[in-house]
Design a protein around this nucleic acid. Structure first.
Length: 492
RNA sequence: GCGCCAGUAGCUCAGCUGGUAGAGCAGCUGACUCUUAAUCAGCGGGUCGUGGGUUCAAAUCCUACCUGGCGCACCA
């Protein structure tokens, strides 16, 4: 690709050539860091006067004739360095002043504190490790253009320190989740991302093709059905933290690929899952934020267990005054929903109508962590039927900040019932519902061998990270969110 | 998919009752050995998102398209 050279790049390319003429490799080699910027800053008392070696990107430069201050940025943050003509000698000092903002350098020198109190490294020697050819974003305002921030996240990370903090926190959250589950005897596993049947959720899949087998494959839309096969196989506590792909719209809450945690525990039920989730969130918030009280946008969220438990019928009654428990069929449910002002597409069954009412009138109110229990059977084809009401299942969703945080059931382990559920889904698919589940004979076969009763749960990791990092958009917690590609010609 | 908003120098932004395109940072030249948004003096830098149209004249008005943001719809 031909690189369009603007004036700023031309100047840097000329400096690059000059360095090469002087026998200096502008792209350096390995460099032994003795310390990170944070270590120098946090242990000044013991390091004062000591020699340290730091490496990082030059992000600011303040020249004063025969001396120059500069800031370098490493993985831990910024630290000031100071270069003096009388220490470096003319040739090296000139080289230092010719460095550009953006260049990556290694410096060796002694630690001191300036008159104004800033911990600084007095450069004794330095080495260019990488010449930067493009100018960085503006130092004070950073990079604002969201298009560029997402497309060129590396610039976002250099220019906007709070972005780095979000992704560091994301990593800590995931680490805490792993530790929590590992400590409870859960086994982390990996299952296929390419499926011959896209199952475990209601969503449109991406389709790809395997040449050697000459078959189409689906990118997975859920982890569920393979993890349950592992319960059949006797791995009694399993979890997977994995990427899921759904071929649907993009919004502040949706990215086509996102990260899901699913876990399954044999001999447990959905009440155990509620307790597990409460404990997990208490642990994760304490470990990563040091508190169970989290500020998210305008709301203060308190994750301290236990969270309230409310059946879906109770929740709907609370916010609409209508008791759908007393409503006998789809026709009556539709009438009640429309009376509340909801517009419904034709042909919905009772369970779907109840869910529509719930999403429209209840979900937005669910700010503090809460469990909503006992979902309609029709929208829950993989959950165990309730013993005292066969139209409902042992399922809950946890909500926080008006959005779904987790979805869990007592897992359906009756293969006969499961087959009937799949068949009902097939009818919906035939009737035009592209998101209805597909039949999965192999999964049914596994169930027929026998799956222990189990509790299972799915947690959208990106949305959890959004809440814990106070990020308004899912794109703020995904390093490289899906974007429409741009023509190379448009790039500078 | 629909609606609203935005796109001007490498970056952050002004300019929009039509009349030769501006600032700050960054860059270049010079001065300056404790600055930290360093300072001071000077200089260079633009297919004004793209294509049509109206007009003597378009960054500015109209139109289509491209890209993005937000909201709605979709998303068990």
């Amino acid at each position: 690709m031909e690189v369009e050279v603007n004036e700023l790049m031309a100047v840097r390319l000329e400096k690059l050539e000059e360095l090469r003429r002087r026998g200096i490799d502008p792209y350096g080699g390995r460099f032994d860091q003795t310390h990170l910027s944070s270590q120098v800053k946090n242990h000044y008392e013991t390091l004062e006067g000591q020699e340290v070696a730091l490496a990082g990107r030059l992000v600011a430069k303040r020249g004063h004739g025969k001396a120059t201050f500069a800031d370098i940025l490493d993985s831990q943050g910024r630290i000031q360095i100071h270069a003096r003509l009388d220490i470096l000698g003319k040739e090296n000092y000139d080289l230092f002043t010719r460095l550009d903002i953006g260049d990556i350098i290694g410096v060796r020198g002694s630690v001191f504190r300036t008159r104004r109190g800033e911990i600084t490294v007095e450069v004794k020697e330095f080495r260019l490790l990488c010449k930067s050819l493009r100018p960085l974003p503006e130092k004070w305002h950073g990079l604002k253009d969201v298009d560029l921030r997402y497309r060129q996240r590396y610039l976002d990370l250099i220019a906007n320190p709070e972005v780095r903090e979000v992704f560091i926190l994301r990593s800590k959250i995931i680490r805490a989740i792993r530790r929590f589950l590992d400590d409870r005897g859960f086994l982390e596993v990996e299952t296929p991302t390419m499926h011959t049947i896209a199952g475990g959720a209601a969503a449109r899949p991406f389709i790809t093709h395997h040449n050697a087998l000459d078959i189409d494959l689906y990118l997975r839309i859920a982890l569920e059905l393979h993890l349950k096969r592992l319960l059949v196989g006797g791995l009694e506590r399993v979890y997977e933290l994995g990427r899921i792909f759904r071929n649907e719209g993009i919004s502040t809450k949706h990215n086509p690929e996102f990260t899901m945690l699913e876990l399954y525990q044999a001999y447990a039920d959905y009440h155990d899952m509620m307790r597990l989730l409460e404990e997990m969130l208490a642990y994760v918030t304490r470990e990563t934020l040091g508190t169970m009280v989290v500020q998210y946008q305008e709301e203060t969220l308190d994750f301290t267990p236990p969270w309230p438990r409310l059946t879906m019928f109770e929740a709907i009654k609370k916010y609409t005054g209508v008791d759908f428990k007393e409503i006998p069929d789809a026709q009556a449910a539709r009438a009640a929903a429309e009376k509340l002002g909801l517009e419904l597409e034709p042909g919905l069954n009772k369970g779907k109508i109840i869910n529509e009412v719930f999403e429209a009138f209840v979900e937005p109110h669910l700010i503090q962590p809460v469990f909503i229990l006992d979902y309609p059977l029709e929208i829950s084809p993989l959950a165990k039927r309730k013993a005292d009401d066969p139209t409902l299942v042992y399922r809950f969703e946890a909500f926080v900040a008006g959005r779904e945080l987790a979805n869990a059931f007592s897992e359906l382990n009756d293969p006969i019932d499961q087959r009937e559920r799949f068949e009902a889904q097939l009818k919906e698919r035939a009737a035009g519902d592209e998101e209805a589940h597909m039949m999965d004979e192999d999964f049914l076969c596994a169930l027929e061998y026998g799956m222990p009763p189990a509790g299972g749960m799915g947690i959208g990791i990106d949305r959890l990270v959004m809440v814990l990092t106070n990020s308004p958009s899912i794109r703020d917690v995904i390093l490289f969110p899906t974007m429409r590609p741009r023509d190379n010609e448009d790039k500078v």
